Computed example of a mutant assay.
Amino acid sequence: MTEELLVGAEAPDFTLENDAGGTTTLSALRGKGVILYFYPKDNTAGCTTQAIAFRDNLARFEALGFTVLGVSRDSVKSHCGFRERQGLNFTLLSDKAETVCNLYGVLKEKMMYGRRCFGIERSTFVISPEGKLLYVMRGVKAKTHVAELLALLEGAA
Rank of each mutant, 00 (worst) to 15 (best):
D95H: 03
L107S: 12
A11T: 01
L16T: 10
C101Y: 04
F118D: 15
T2L: 15
F66V: 05
G105A: 08
F125I: 02
L133M: 01
E130W: 14
T124F: 06
G31P: 12
G131H: 01
D19I: 01
A157D: 13
K32Q: 14
P12G: 09
V100H: 02
L152R: 11
T48S: 10
L36P: 09
T49E: 09
Q86Y: 13
R85T: 10
G21P: 03
S72H: 02
M1L: 14
T124V: 07
L16Y: 07
A11N: 02
G114Y: 09
R60N: 14
K110D: 00
L92M: 08
D13P: 07
L152G: 05
T2K: 11
Y104W: 04
R115M: 15
T67Y: 09
E17G: 12
L92T: 06
T49W: 11
Q50P: 03
G8W: 04
T15G: 09
S78P: 01
F14D: 08
L152P: 14
M137W: 10
A53N: 09
T67N: 13
I52E: 09
T91S: 07
G87S: 11
K143I: 14
E3T: 14
K132M: 12
F54K: 04
T24F: 02
L103Y: 08
F125V: 03
I127T: 03
F90G: 00
G8V: 07
V106T: 03
V106G: 05
P129W: 09
L134N: 13
N43G: 12
D13L: 01
H145Y: 03
V34I: 06
L149W: 08
M111F: 14
G70E: 00
A59H: 03
A151V: 10
L5Y: 02
Y104I: 08
L64H: 06
T2P: 13
E130K: 14
E3W: 11
G8E: 02
D95P: 06
L103T: 02
P129S: 06
T44F: 01
I127Q: 00
R30L: 08
E17N: 13
H145S: 12
R85A: 13
S78M: 04
E10A: 14
D19N: 12
G131Y: 11
L26T: 00
I120R: 12
A53F: 07
K141N: 12
D42N: 10
I120M: 03
F66Y: 08
V68S: 00
